[in-house]
Design a protein around this nucleic acid. Structure first.
Lengths: 315, 315
DNA sequence: CTGTTAGCGCCTTCAA
DNA sequence: TTGAAGGCGCTAACAG
């Protein structure tokens, strides 16, 4: 533990081979005799040698770092995705730089600029409405979008339409005929409008009269919009997120109404506080893992861009 | 944007000076004539040159990376601290590697090992009961503990005693004589026992009969322990965290009781859902910022270790 | 105060 | 299949 760092040179001397042989071993090249490789690997393990990232980066001109830009660190959904992303990245011997966009395109642009300057190899970006092709144009083939999609860029998106469909069908099967909706406009256009449109589509299909309101992702917005659109006749409510649902439920309880609530997210908090809410889980962990796998494939040149949809399910 | 990266050499040529002069300018050395420095800086800005991290690291043998190990990514309190830490680290031209210990000493040990191998310069570690001197012994003078303290290591801790004191005094002033307590054992010994002990101390001081239970930080634990110790006679309850409080409140509401709840944390969720809860904010952001400032000072050799207590306040 | 020089640890030709 | 040599971009002596 106290010995100074060993170098590739030391390992070469200790195992009686040349530097380049050791280098080949490290990089899993096929061009080393099996006996030699095993001997060198034994020495490496014995002395606990690890190649210097700095030297590798300098020599190869690649930094082995992935930038991860979330919209909010305290978003429960993004948190779960990050939990899958970080270990996967570390496991691939990459480092991760985590940043927060706060849904601000200017801030995002700054972050991407920093990442570019640091020679970061790839980026995983949680989308929002301010993300456009221009901002990320320098990252073709080395950026994966999560939760929103853009032509020519890889993306992993949630099955927003499927989630609303599940909820609408469930409500219908449970006999609800008066189903309202509270969603979002501002977060991510795709997410927001897909969910809303799907709600409208199913209203029409089922012959329901749509009653909807759109706001932001906060508890307060859920509360305010609930006050605006709910009536004693409302029998069910679908919310675009758990935070909105918690806000709406607060209002519903204050009124003493009985309204069945369905929500997209399925956070532990919701499951605990309101177990009778119908929760759809979008698959955040799966999305995170998928995104980092996809990015790694792209960096290896095994894929260009690709669009993945993560399936959802009622909890 | 499309030009290949400039090197220090290019800048030297372009500004008609030697490489080392440029190096000195980059590193803000005092030993450069003002005119020369300004000229070189102008060229640097004009061409948008940024020094190669890899080369700097290789040459100087320092990686300019800080490891940040939280207990849980989805902890609201740690989240707020991270929000202060990351920007501060990036701003100092450092990178941050974020990891999650999940309160598991083995996992933490693995993470610290990885960080050591990557030549990470310093670590900010969110403490829990499994953290001991042995695990972090290799990090003397380059590690700052948050939320717990250990001799010979720098730490930034919350004013746990002060928080409970504030709550107890407030309850007393509001006329409550039957004040229960729900806390934690498992998370962090210091945090858990300090808060509990302070509760006991003030019970004695005020002549109250203590009624307390200790569990973990989950909603469920709060709920279960509430069921265990609360009675219709209980007039107030102090909870060691917002999550516990939310669990306890659920039980209280189910019983239809009127119990004044005080809690430590002051998360937006709590403020929204239960505005009448008395919340003490511990100063997470301040703690995060303080910790990274302290670490930077230590890395610069300006400080060795130091213990900082962040003041708390009723929201 | 500024230029010259010699590596930091590794990967990549090029020979052998 | 393996060894030797050169250089990635930068910093830190040491001269001037």
């Amino acid at each position: 533990m106290s010995d100074k760092k060993l170098t590739l040179n030391d390992i070469a001397r200790l195992s009686g081979v040349g530097k380049s042989t050791v280098s080949l071993v490290i990089n899993n090249s096929e061009k080393v005799k099996k006996a030699t490789r095993e001997h060198v690997e034994a020495i490496i393990k014995q002395y606990g040698y690890t190649p210097s990232k700095a030297a590798q980066a300098l020599r190869s001109q690649r930094e082995k770092i992935i930038g991860v830009v979330v919209t909010r660190l305290d978003s429960a959904s993004e948190n779960r995705a990050i939990r899958a992303i970080l270990p996967h990245i570390y496991q691939q011997e990459y480092d991760a730089i985590l940043m927060e966009s706060l849904l601000d395109p200017k801030l995002l642009e700054g972050h991407l600029h920093v990442l570019e300057q640091r020679n970061v190899e790839g980026v995983i970006l949680f989308g929002f409405s301010g993300v456009n092709k221009k901002i990320i144009k320098n990252w073709k083939n080395k950026l994966v979008l999560i939760a929103s999609a853009l032509p020519d860029f890889a993306s992993v998106i949630y099955d927003n339409a499927g989630a609303v469909k599940l909820l609408m069908e469930k409500m219908k099967n449970d006999g609800h005929r008066n189903v309202s909706y509270i969603g979002v406009t501002s977060n991510d256009i795709t997410t927001g409008s897909t969910r809303y449109q799907t709600y409208l589509t199913y209203c029409e299909k089922f012959g329901y009269r749509p009653t909807a309101a759109l706001g932001d992702l906060s508890y307060q917005s859920g509360y305010d919009l609930a006050k605006e659109i709910l009536t004693p006749e409302t029998s069910a409510l679908i919310c675009a997120s758990d935070t909105i649902a918690l806000g709406a439920i607060k209002y519903i309880k204050e009124q003493g109404w009985e309204i069945k609530v369905g929500s997209i997210g399925s956070t532990p908090l919701m499951t605990f506080l309101q177990p009778d809410v119908i929760s759809v889980r979008l698959g955040y962990q799966e999305a995170g893992l998928k995104a980092s796998q996809l990015l790694m494939d792209m960096l290896r040149g095994e894929k260009t861009h690709e669009h993945v949809i993560i399936p959802c399910a009622i909890q």
